[in-house]
Amino acid sequence: MKGYFLPCAALLSFCLNIATTQAAELTLELGDQGQTWSTAELLALPQTRDITIASDVSYKRKMHYKAVPLAVLLKSVKPGEHIQAIAADGFAAELPAAPLLSTQGARAWLAIEEPSRPWPILGNKGYSAGPFYLVWENPEASNIGSEQWPYQVAKFRLLPSVAERFPNLLPANDASEDVRLGLAQYQKNCMACHRLNKAGDSQFGPDLNLPHNPTEYFKPGFLSRYIRDPQSMRHWPQGKMPGFGEASISNTELNQLLAYLSHMASRKIE
């Protein structure tokens, strides 16, 4: 009879995943407009479609989803504005609104996990990417990075830009062009998990300037190798930092990011 039973841990994970999906709600905080959508309400939208994501960032393979264009949910948002996507674990992706609203090139979709068809578990995490997951068709058309695919999304918020909210992230007025471009790379690739100078909304990873900046304790060359493949430099089974290959951040962009981090080491707040 044992062939008919799941191991206790797997069964518990499966049941918790279904329960979470059934109880799921997505919150939108778009200025004066606040709204909550249930899984059932999102699935019932006339714009909801069956889509195929050829190379899913989280599952590392082709995936099929029920999904609604994110632009449908953000119809009151303007292209020049700024959106933050907050996940259940504290991951906070900072996203310019324009790509989220675009119907050309890369296209953003909110994938919706159906209670009757739960998605696969993510690696050894014990949970799926649901109940809500921001996925992209043709991401390469708009240089969409891996950190712009937040999963287990709980909330979308309309906020002022990162520069307006967090002046502690700004480089000196006379900073080089590489440093300024590096701030954009930091916002795109690092800020979803980390703070810097105590600036940021993420509750996921450590501060990258306090008490020490990684450029202060990594030997030259090792920090870039660590960003490319963290587990190859410091193996830790519980490590959560993903690797950033050249498809996510080019060598030029990586050098810009390192220039920004090095610059900010001399701009620690008190």
Rank of each mutant, 00 (worst) to 15 (best):
I249D: 00
L208H: 01
N189F: 09
Y186G: 02
R228A: 15
Q231D: 09
K188L: 07
S224F: 03
L223Q: 04
N209M: 09
Q231S: 14
S250C: 05
S224E: 15
P230Y: 13
D229G: 02
N255Y: 01
E246L: 12
F244L: 15
G205D: 08
K188D: 03
K198D: 03
S232M: 11
A199W: 00
G200Q: 10
L183D: 02
D201L: 14
G182Y: 01
N189M: 07
T215Q: 01
A184V: 11
P242R: 06
R195W: 05
A199Y: 01
F244T: 05
M191S: 09
G200P: 00
I249E: 04
P237Y: 09
G243W: 03
W236D: 10
R195C: 00
G182Q: 05
R180G: 03
G243R: 06
I227G: 01
L183V: 12
V179P: 00
T215R: 02
G243E: 13
C193S: 06
Y186R: 10
Q238H: 04
Q187K: 15
P242D: 08
T252G: 07
N255H: 09
Q238S: 12
P237F: 04
L257V: 05
G205H: 05
D229M: 04
F218L: 01
D207W: 00
S224H: 03
R228T: 15
Q238N: 11
K240E: 13
S232V: 04
R228V: 15
G182T: 06
S250Q: 08
P214D: 09
F204E: 02
P237C: 08
T215P: 00
G200L: 11
D201E: 14
Q203W: 12
N255W: 02
G200T: 07
A199G: 14
H212L: 10
F204A: 07
H212I: 05
Y226E: 01
L223E: 05
C193H: 05
Q238A: 11
G182C: 14
Y226M: 14
P214S: 09
N197S: 08
P237E: 11
Q203I: 08
T252I: 13
A184F: 11
L181H: 13
A184H: 06
G205W: 09
W236P: 00
A192D: 03
G182N: 13
N213W: 09
N251W: 05
I249S: 01
D207G: 06
I227N: 00
K219S: 07
Q185C: 08
D207R: 03
N255S: 14
R225A: 11
F244H: 11
N209I: 08
A247G: 07
L181I: 10
E253R: 13
G182W: 00
Q238P: 00
D201R: 12
F244Q: 12
V179R: 01
S232K: 14
Q187W: 06
R228N: 09
A184Y: 08
L196W: 05
A199D: 11
I249K: 03
K219C: 01
G200C: 09
R180M: 13
A184L: 15
L208N: 03
L183E: 02
C190R: 06
K240S: 10
A199S: 15
H235R: 14
G221D: 06
A247F: 01
